[in-house]
């Protein structure tokens, strides 16, 4: 970043860019969440299961996000780890109505946390306990319990319940990530 970038940002003309990776099991609502965070005119009306991954962009008040929306299907999950290195934050989406697969999500999280590129890094992790509107969904507290989040000691993390269809709960998470990244840069 050159002098002009810094100046531009200081002047509020150009926002700082951050790379974020969005992971979670298939059907958890990753693409729907990212779609909801994009500006209204860029939003897609129908969402299909992601193949491989897609790159999306959206912005918060002070940051410009580049998101790697990974596919959560079993056969694509081994792609995740290739994008950990460049990521400055992780968004982990959990379908809080899928009690059966909570263990699978937990297993994937453990693998993520034990990855060489993540282990040593103090990278913020945001959890969305998504699909809070479904009648069988678990509360964010319950989800965090079942996922064993309290054992994450060396990284800042945050969980919030969300509804990707209405956008409820999403801004809270984005604000938290923004705060984390800004406090780290200082």
């Amino acid at each position: 970043m050159g002098f002009f970038d810094t100046l531009a940002r200081w002047l509020g003309m150009k926002k700082k860019e951050v790379n974020v990776i969005c992971v979670g099991l298939d059907n958890s609502g990753k693409t729907t969440i990212i779609n909801q965070l994009k500006p209204q005119n860029a939003q897609q009306s129908d969402i299909v299961p992601t193949i491989g991954f897609t790159v999306e962009k959206f912005a918060s008040a002070s940051l410009s996000f580049t998101v790697f929306d990974m596919s959560g299907q079993g056969r694509y999950r081994n792609l995740w780890e290739h994008y950990y290195k460049d990521a400055q934050a992780i968004i982990f989406v959990i379908d809080s109505s899928d009690k059966l697969r909570m263990v699978v999500a937990k297993d994937e999280l453990e693998q993520l946390l034990n990855n060489q590129d993540i282990l040593s890094k103090r990278i913020p992790i945001l959890f969305y306990a998504n699909k809070m509107d479904m009648k069988e969904s678990l509360s964010a507290v319950k989800v965090s319990q079942m996922m064993g989040l309290e054992t994450i000691k060396d990284k800042p993390w945050h969980i919030c319940a969300s509804n990707a269809i209405t956008g409820e709960g999403l801004p809270e998470g984005v604000e938290w990530v923004t705060d984390q990244i800004r406090s780290m840069k200082k």
Partner: peptide, 8 residues
């Protein structure tokens, strides 16, 4: 396959 999990 049970739920969305193939190896159940």
């Amino acid at each position: 396959r049970f739920g969305r999990e193939d190896g159940a």
